[in-house]
Amino acid sequence: MAEKIQLQEVVPDSCLGKRLDQTIAQMFPDFSRSRLKDWILAGNVSVNGEVTTKAREKMYGGEVINLDAEIEAEVHFEPQDIELNIVYEDDDILVINKPAGLVVHPGAGNPDGTVLNALLHHNPDQENLPRAGIVHRLDKDTTGLMVVAKTIAAQTNLVDALQHREITREYEAIANGIMTAGGVVDEPIGRHPSKRTHMAITMSGRPSVTHYRVAEKYRLHTRLRLRLETGRTHQIRVHMAHIAHPLVGDPVYGGRPRPPKNASEELRELLRNFRRQALHATMLSLYHPITGELMTWHAPVPDDMQEIADALHLDAQQNMVEEY
């Protein structure tokens, strides 16, 4: 069953000189490049009120892009009885607290056993929505809050809210190194030039902004509270590694465990065995896509990450006493 979608955006100045297909891929990141190009060729895209089928048309910034298309149900995925920790649900949206190890969407190496498969089992009508209503993603081993749409209207409005930075997402993380103050990382992120599964800071990447503040300082680590202004793949992980404070346990950007000097064997063991990035989406705040009501949810840090934080706190306290 086809569903109508109507979106309007102004081309940012940063797209000066880019082709139309490249530009709308940046402006509407929740749709695949191939689907967007098909819509251009089918006459579903207009620039300043004029329909165009020229995917290579150059943009200058300031143009008004209208996308008016129908979305067909995507590739069929099997419903699977996978438990979802549902924090909130109504007729239009649901919010889940995703555990570590659960992939959000099927892909290479993960054909099923994902949040998407679980959503289809929980509510079969999700099959009529692009990506089964998934609006944004968390990495496989990042835990925490995600919002999912249950109707095409809710999904369209949530995607629009994300693009206009009207959804607030806060994370907790444990980073390597001692950070004395908070700050902002404003560096573009794109695909790594040689490592296909990695992301990297690259001038050809998309604008990416992460705000962070210090929540607690340990001897050789820092607990952080972070807020996303944009939502790029691996954004927090890449940004923290870029400023030489990679997340504890990050298998891609983190390097080896770094225990503090004279750390207990228990703490060393915990750091050695923590094999995922210490990152948790702890707060989600948005205006309900249908009612307009401001809604906020919180999810406590999971046990494995809290255990690391407690051990680092104890280590800092014990060594403070010994040094005193």
Rank of each mutant, 00 (worst) to 15 (best):
283 M>V: 15
91 D>C: 08
239 H>N: 01
176 N>L: 13
305 M>R: 03
137 R>P: 10
279 L>P: 06
318 Q>M: 15
33 R>N: 03
285 S>P: 05
40 I>E: 00
260 P>F: 01
79 P>I: 08
123 N>Y: 14
29 P>K: 00
323 E>Q: 15
158 L>I: 08
32 S>Q: 02
110 N>K: 12
200 A>L: 09
148 V>S: 05
54 K>G: 04
110 N>L: 09
260 P>Y: 01
187 E>L: 12
13 D>T: 09
35 R>W: 13
126 Q>P: 13
22 Q>Y: 06
49 G>A: 04
122 H>W: 06
161 A>D: 11
236 I>N: 05
29 P>V: 00
81 D>N: 15
166 E>W: 05
238 V>M: 03
247 L>D: 01
208 S>P: 00
291 T>L: 02
205 G>S: 08
157 N>C: 03
85 N>S: 13
160 D>Q: 13
296 T>S: 15
20 L>S: 04
262 N>D: 15
258 R>P: 07
255 G>W: 03
309 A>I: 06
178 I>E: 10
175 A>K: 07
306 Q>P: 10
285 S>Q: 12
254 G>D: 06
285 S>W: 04
43 G>L: 00
134 I>Q: 11
223 R>H: 15
185 V>L: 02
61 G>T: 10
148 V>M: 10
13 D>I: 10
163 Q>G: 11
238 V>L: 02
207 P>Q: 09
267 L>E: 01
4 K>F: 09
211 H>Q: 12
18 K>I: 10
180 T>W: 08
191 R>F: 03
177 G>K: 11
124 P>W: 01
113 G>E: 13
238 V>S: 01
162 L>D: 00
115 V>L: 15
113 G>M: 13
207 P>F: 08
117 N>A: 06
183 G>W: 07
218 Y>M: 12
214 V>N: 09
186 D>G: 04
36 L>R: 00
237 R>M: 04
46 S>H: 05
145 L>G: 08
40 I>V: 01
259 P>Y: 02
216 E>L: 11
250 D>W: 00
7 L>T: 02
274 F>R: 04
51 V>W: 01
100 A>H: 11
138 L>K: 11
83 E>Y: 13
207 P>R: 14
277 Q>W: 06
142 T>N: 05
192 H>L: 07
21 D>Q: 05
219 R>W: 02
56 R>Y: 08
25 A>W: 08
63 E>T: 02
324 Y>L: 13
98 K>F: 07
17 G>S: 07
139 D>G: 02
293 E>A: 15
193 P>I: 09
160 D>C: 05
279 L>S: 05
219 R>L: 14
4 K>A: 14
298 H>F: 13
273 N>H: 13
293 E>I: 14
211 H>N: 07
293 E>L: 12
279 L>Q: 03
176 N>D: 10
190 G>M: 08
295 M>P: 01
281 A>I: 07
300 P>A: 09
30 D>A: 14
210 T>W: 08
185 V>P: 03
139 D>S: 03
